[in-house]
């Protein structure tokens, strides 16, 4: 049994985007804060810290989850992926990222990393979704800038819905 007292810092290690990393943290440290401020992966954003906006979405063992509702301790020993993992070497954008650029699916870009991480998970399980299914998954995110039209266009193109 892993047990840590409240004021104690312990070393939490996990695999972040393919690399083993670790840092010290109290049990209450949120995964979103741990990734951003302890491990320096600032691509994951924080928009509400109560699980509604989806900005903080990352993957744990391939599954998209809200990192603001996850303790760093819960990700201990797990495989965590963030938006920084998506582009290829030399920064080449992947298909989904390219579709986002082409269809102007982002303005401020604050919501975008979470959306990309949700769909990277969802599309790996459902490579040929319907438009309705895309909309359903996107409804787990708030974007204040775009009105969602560009995002839907990008998603549809990425999965081959014309």
């Amino acid at each position: 049994m892993r047990r840590v007292n409240k004021d104690e810092k312990s070393r939490i290690s996990l695999t972040l985007n393919g690399r083993k990393m670790a840092a010290e943290a109290e049990p209450r440290m949120l995964l979103s804060d741990f990734l951003r401020h302890s491990l320096g992966a600032t691509g994951t954003h924080v928009g509400c810290e109560h699980g509604v906006c989806g900005c903080c979405t990352v993957q744990i063992d391939g599954t998209a989850v809200r990192s603001c509702l996850t303790l760093a301790m819960q990700a201990e020993g797990r495989d965590v992926k963030t938006v920084e993992s998506l582009a290829g070497p030399n920064g080449r954008l992947n298909t989904l990222q390219q579709a986002f650029q082409k269809h102007h699916a982002l303005q401020c870009g604050f919501c975008t990393p979470g959306i990309l991480m949700s769909f990277t998970d969802f599309l790996s399980r459902n490579p040929k979704p319907t438009e309705e299914e895309l909309r359903e998954v996107l409804s787990g995110h708030i974007c204040r800038c775009t009105g969602y039209a560009g995002i839907m266009a990008a998603l549809k193109e990425a999965v081959g819905i014309s």
Partner: peptide
């Protein structure tokens, strides 16, 4: 919006 301290057990 950060939680209060607590002990953690797994």
């Amino acid at each position: 919006m950060k939680p209060r301290p607590f002990d953690y057990a797994r």
